[in-house]
Amino acid sequence: MPLLDSLTEALRVLPGVGPKSAQRMAYHLLQRDREGAARLAGTLAAALAEVRHCARCNNFTEAEVCERCLSQQRDASQLCVVEMPSDLMVMESTLAYRGLYYVLMGKLSPLDGIGPRELKFDKLVERATDGMVQEVILATNFTNEGEATAHYLGEMLRARGLRVSRIARGVPVGGELEHTDLGTVAQAFVERRGW
């Protein structure tokens, strides 16, 4: 296969990139921005060689164990489980949490064949049962997949003697019932608490 065609074909691994956009990208890289293309090639190769999953939190890192997991400033008795690195970033920017994390890199998705084996539930169990962690906070999304993931993780971790909690959901801060979607209002009602 000519190199130009191989490049177009290779670019199609990117999500949402079809044959037409792949061809456009290939022309752009080779014609308009050869310097950018060289940088992309170099960085991609380096990242592939160096970036791996942290042995403790499963997030991306270049070290065996990432900086956050090694930090003495964090509370090692709390472990917050999130689906993706972007969720971890959101939790961090709230400044509301000082514990450690575990990043699943996905969620249970039975129709796509993503189950406990694909998500390496055993790696999380090993992490959560290190003797330091006392509470696991499940912060997966409030989608059906996120709920299913939280349910099974909860059962599995409770069975190993850990305290398990789930982040709360409800009407947004500053939100008015009138302008909140029905599902949120209905669930906030179901999950109402003593006052």
């Binding site: 059906n144 709920e147 299913a148 029905l182 209905a186």
Partner: peptide, 25 residues
């Protein structure tokens, strides 16, 4: 848009729901 009136599924109910969906698909 949501019609409402159906409580959210949880736990094994969700997994059973996925199974029904896959059967129909």
């Amino acid at each position: 848009s949501w019609q409402g009136g159906q409580a959210l599924l949880g736990g094994i109910g969700l997994l059973c729901g996925y199974y029904l969906n896959e059967l129909m698909l």
